[in-house]
């Protein structure tokens, strides 16, 4: 490999700082003692975390987010795995069009999806309900599952299934004992990304939430407009921490499955 020019390397390092560092400021901010923004942060206090974890509004938003995220991840994983299998193995016309259609929630601006969902969910009585949030977030998470499972499928050798059939396994038995275990890394990371998508989503949530049922990002969003309060920083830090933990799990799943493949 050629060596990279040091000036270009330094530029890349600065861009890396620009990518990561600005966001991390919410963490020290969440531990300050005073409610006014001060730098460097004065004192150390956990009171903002205490507020976020005990205040009923914050608490219920956190619970709603967890519930909606879990529901959407589960639905997106089941439906998305089915789509990935159908797309790769089914024989029907217009597969390319179908693929684009299924990935379209990634392409359509979320603000448009949010408005469109709001229009019909008002009619269907789904606004301000966890079910409505789950339905909308499921659609948003679906493409991530489809991509992730499809990539796993493209590495799977179909002849293993044929071997199982030839040994007398039923299609279902072969699927659950031969195919699914090997797709599992793709399925699990798809599930994690679907959860993260829901967990971080603020715009659809803003439209579909009610004062009773509202997600954490939706609450953070409305609090931001009322000024910088460290309890928002604490909530934001919690949001980041959960995402980071899930990303770490996803990369562990990836690493383990790569090791299994190579051994």
């Amino acid at each position: 490999m050629r060596r990279v020019n040091p000036a270009v390397g330094a530029a890349a390092a600065l861009v890396a700082v620009f990518l990561v560092a600005p966001t991390l400021v919410v963490i020290p901010l969440s531990f300050t003692e005073y409610s006014v923004l001060n730098w460097p942060p004065h004192g150390f206090s956990l009171k903002w975390y205490d507020e976020v974890l005990t205040d009923p509004t914050w608490r219920s938003a956190t619970m709603t987010s967890l519930k909606v995220g879990a529901g959407a991840a589960l639905a997106a994983t089941v439906l998305g795995t089915g789509i990935a299998l159908g797309l790769s193995r089914g024989r029907f016309r217009g597969k390319n069009v179908a693929t684009i259609a299924i990935l379209s929630p990634m392409i359509v601006p979320v603000v448009i999806t949010a408005v469109a969902n709001y229009f019909v969910f008002v009619k269907w009585g789904l606004t301000g309900t966890a079910a409505g949030l789950i339905a909308a977030h499921t659609v948003l998470g679906l493409p991530f599952v489809v991509v992730s499972v499809s990539n796993s499928l493209s590495r799977f050798d179909r002849n293993q299934e044929n071997a199982a059939y030839s040994l007398g396994a039923s299609p279902l038995f072969a699927f659950f004992t031969v195919t699914l275990p090997q797709l599992l890394p793709g399925v699990l990371s798809g599930a994690l990304f679907a959860f993260i998508t829901s967990w971080d989503e603020a715009i659809i949530s803003q439209f579909l939430s009610s004062p009773q049922v509202r997600t954490l990002p939706s609450l953070i969003f409305s609090q931001i407009s009322s000024g910088v309060d460290p309890s928002v920083a604490a909530a934001a830090s919690i949001l980041l921490a959960v995402t980071a933990a899930l990303l770490a799990s996803a990369s562990i799943i990836g690493a383990v499955s790569r090791r299994k493949r190579s051994s």
């Binding site: 600005p22 953070i220 949001l239």
Partner: peptide, 13 residues
Amino acid sequence: WMSILVRTYAWTV
């Protein structure tokens, strides 16, 4: 993968 909302909020700081 980090929340756009949190990253934008951090910029306000």
